[in-house]
C-alpha cells in the first residue's frame, strides 16, 4: 500500500539550535497521527516543514499526488506546492486569526478556497458555504457575519469548514483545541472525529493535550528536544509508555 505521506530523515536547524532532527514516518490514507511533546520540543517546526511553510534543511517529504504519485514536496515548485495547499492539503492554525480573513464574511472565508481553484458561480459557492457552515454547526443566518463577531469556538469551527470545503486528503492541525474551554473543546473534538471518519481524512495533529490524541489519533509520536523518542499505537504508547519522558508526560495528566 502506498503511504499518503512518507517522511524520511527530516531535519531543521535554527543556526546551531536543533528544530527537529531525524524524523521519519509513513502516514497511510485514513490514518490520523498525533505528535505530542512539551513546548519547544520541535512539534510545530516539524508540522511547518511537512506543510511546506518552512523549508527543511535535510530530508524528503513525499506526498502521494493525484497526478504523479509520490512526489517530494520540498523540491516541488512554489506554484505546485501552493496548489496542493489549497486542494489536497489543509492547515488548521491554533489561533483562528491566523487561518481566517477577519475582515471578510464567514461565507467569503469558506468560499475563498473554492474561488482559488476556479469556482466562478456565485450561487454554487454560496450553497457549499452554507452546507459547510451547517456541518460545523454554525447557523446559516450567520453566513454574512464577519468572523470577529464569532466566539472563539465558532471561529475555530469556521476555520475547519474553510479548510475542508475543497475536500482535502491530508489535514495538518496545530493545537486545534488550544485556547478553548473544556466543554467547547469536547464539542470541537467530537465534530473533528466525525468529519475525519466521514471523509476518510488523513491528519497530522500537533498537540500537548493527551486527551485530544487519545480521542482522535490512531498513532502517536512523542517528541523531546527535537528528537522522536517514542512511536506506536496511541493506546499502546499512552497505556504502556516506555521512554522516561513519555512516562513523565502520561503521569503529569491530572486525574479529576
Amino acid at each position: 500500500m502506498t503511504p499518503l505521506l512518507r517522511v524520511t530523515d527530516l531535519s531543521k536547524f535554527y543556526g546551531q539550535r536543533v528544530g527537529c532532527t531525524d524524523v521519519a514516518f509513513n502516514l497511510f490514507p485514513g490514518e490520523v497521527m498525533g505528535i505530542v511533546g512539551e513546548s519547544g520540543s520541535g512539534k510545530s517546526t516539524l508540522l511547518n516543514c511537512l506543510a511546506g511553510h518552512v523549508p527543511p534543511d535535510t530530508g524528503e517529504v513525499l506526498f502521494d499526488t493525484r497526478a504523479d504519485g509520490l512526489k517530494d514536496t520540498v523540491q516541488m515548485s512554489e506554484p505546485e506546492r501552493r496548489m496542493l495547499g489549497r486542494t489536497d492539503w489543509a492547515f488548521v492554525h491554533q489561533n483562528p486569526r491566523d487561518g481566517l480573513r477577519m475582515g471578510i464574511s464567514a461565507g467569503g472565508n469558506v468560499g475563498e478556497r473554492l474561488m482559488a481553484v476556479g469556482a466562478r458561480h456565485y450561487g454554487e459557492i454560496r450553497e457549499s458555504a452554507t452546507d459547510w457552515l451547517g456541518r460545523v454547526e454554525i447557523a446559516a443566518d450567520r453566513i454574512d457575519d464577519k468572523p470577529r463577531a464569532f466566539s472563539g469556538g465558532m471561529q475555530q469551527r469556521l476555520q475547519i469548514a474553510r479548510n475542508l470545503v475543497t475536500g482535502p486528503r491530508l489535514v495538518f492541525m496545530d493545537e486545534p483545541t488550544g485556547g478553548l474551554d473544556v466543554s467547547v473543546q469536547a464539542r470541537l473534538l467530537d465534530l473533528l472525529r466525525g468529519l475525519v471518519r466521514q471523509m476518510g481524512l488523513s491528519a497530522v495533529i500537533v498537540t500537548h493535550d493527551l486527551a485530544v490524541v487519545r480521542l482522535l489519533a490512531d498513532r502517536l509520536m512523542v517528541m523531546k528536544s527535537g528528537h522522536v523518542v517514542e512511536t506506536g499505537l496511541t493506546d499502546q504508547v499512552l497505556d504502556d509508555p516506555q521512554h522516561a519522558y513519555t512516562q513523565l508526560l502520561v503521569s503529569s495528566v491530572l486525574q479529576v
Partner: peptide, 18 residues
Amino acid sequence: SLEDYGLMHVKLYEDIAQ
C-alpha cells in the same frame, strides 16, 4: 507571479453577499 487570484473574486463575492 503565481497567478494566485482567488482573493480578487472574494471581493466580488463580498459585494454580492452584501
